[in-house]
Computed example of a mutant assay.
Amino acid sequence: MADLELRQDGDVIWATMNRPDRLNALSRNLVTELREFFVDLYWRRDVRVVVLQGAGKAFCAGLDLKESNDPGGSQRSIGAGLTRQREISEIVIAMRRCPQPIIACVNGAAAGGGFALALASDVRIATPNLRMNAAFIRIGLSACDIGVSYFLPRMVGSSVAAEYMLTGRFIDAERAYQLGLVSRVVPQEQLEAEAQGFVDDMLHATPLGLRLTKEALNHAIDAQGLEAAIAMEDRNQILASSDGDFGEGVRAFLEKRRPQYTRREG
């Protein structure tokens, strides 16, 4: 059985980390499957939205420290250790780079690498038992790992990011919602339905419009100023309005119906 289960429903892939007995901790195999999945998404035009979730009672408890007899890496060369590190960090780079919006259904623990996966997603929905933290610093490492030092201060500011990264303290659901780290907090039994609501709304956009919006939003976070962000927005609006699906989007809006896009943006 795969550690990452993939179910495609039309234009959507529901990706489930499937190691519930280990709280979906990141094994070597799960790391490989996540990396290959998100890297491959860049080239796929049959997928428009991804929902990422964890099986059982946790989202992802971080790296599986029990998988290796040498969890600290003391017997590895520096080069081998760096390669292993890059194999993991490439996942969040691919998540940010792929054109599909990623909705994370964060149930229970999202620690260490699981925290990073949640932060690298575009929309986060949580359950009341959410517990997120930069667990790395509690096991003798730096809290700056797998993109956390990039994403977290941009989302909550440097002071709050420092609070949680220097201490490894947990962020619960109420605090995460207050900070804007999650968009919704819903009971676990409503998690998939809430995600489906986001999916349905996202699929109202044209394939090209959805892709360009994620791309521009991510670039705008790092833009050098207002004019740089607006130049990118202007370029994307001309591209989107020149696409064949634009007319159908307008007609569907005026006729108060769901759009029927017949093209694949390629």
Rank of each mutant, 00 (worst) to 15 (best):
Leu4Lys: 09
Glu5Tyr: 09
Gln8Met: 12
Asp9Pro: 09
Ala15Ser: 06
Met17Glu: 01
Arg19Ile: 09
Arg22Cys: 08
Leu23Asn: 15
Asn24His: 10
Arg28Glu: 10
Asn29Phe: 05
Thr32Cys: 02
Glu36Lys: 09
Phe37Ala: 06
Leu41Ile: 05
Leu41Gly: 05
Tyr42Gly: 13
Arg45Ala: 12
Val51Cys: 08
Gly54Thr: 03
Gly54Trp: 07
Ala55Gly: 11
Ala55Trp: 03
Ala58Phe: 02
Ala58Pro: 03
Ala58Ser: 14
Cys60Tyr: 04
Cys60Gly: 05
Ala61Met: 07
Leu63Ala: 12
Leu63His: 08
Leu65Cys: 04
Leu65Phe: 07
Lys66Pro: 07
Glu67Gly: 11
Ser68Ile: 02
Asn69Thr: 14
Pro71Gly: 11
Pro71Asn: 07
Gly73Ser: 01
Arg76Glu: 09
Ala80Ser: 14
Gly81Arg: 15
Gln85His: 11
Gln85Lys: 14
Gln85Asn: 13
Arg86Ala: 13
Ile88Cys: 04
Ile93Leu: 15
Ile93Pro: 00
Arg96Trp: 08
Arg96Thr: 10
Arg97Met: 13
Pro99Leu: 06
Gln100Phe: 08
Pro101Glu: 07
Ile103Gln: 00
Ala120Met: 02
Asp122Val: 03
Arg124Gly: 00
Ile125Asn: 01
Pro128Arg: 12
Leu130His: 12
Asn133Arg: 14
Ala134Tyr: 03
Ala134His: 00
Ala134Ile: 00
Phe136Asp: 13
Asp145Thr: 02
Gly147Gln: 03
Val148Ala: 04
Val148Trp: 07
Phe151Leu: 04
Pro153Trp: 05
Met155Lys: 13
Met155Gly: 06
Gly157Cys: 10
Ser158Lys: 13
Tyr164Gly: 07
Arg169Thr: 11
Ala173Val: 03
Ala173Cys: 06
Ala173Gln: 06
Ala176Ser: 06
Gln178Ser: 11
Leu179Tyr: 02
Leu179Pro: 01
Leu179His: 01
Pro187Ile: 04
Gln188Glu: 10
Glu189Tyr: 06
Ala205Ser: 11
Pro207Gln: 02
Ala216Cys: 12
Asn218Met: 10
Ile221Pro: 00
Ala231Val: 04
Glu233Pro: 01
Arg235Asn: 11
Ile238Leu: 12
Ser242Gly: 15
Gly244His: 10
Asp245Tyr: 03
Val250Met: 02
Ala252Leu: 00
Ala252Lys: 05
Leu254Gly: 01
Arg257Gly: 12
Tyr261Arg: 01
Arg263Met: 13
Glu265Arg: 11
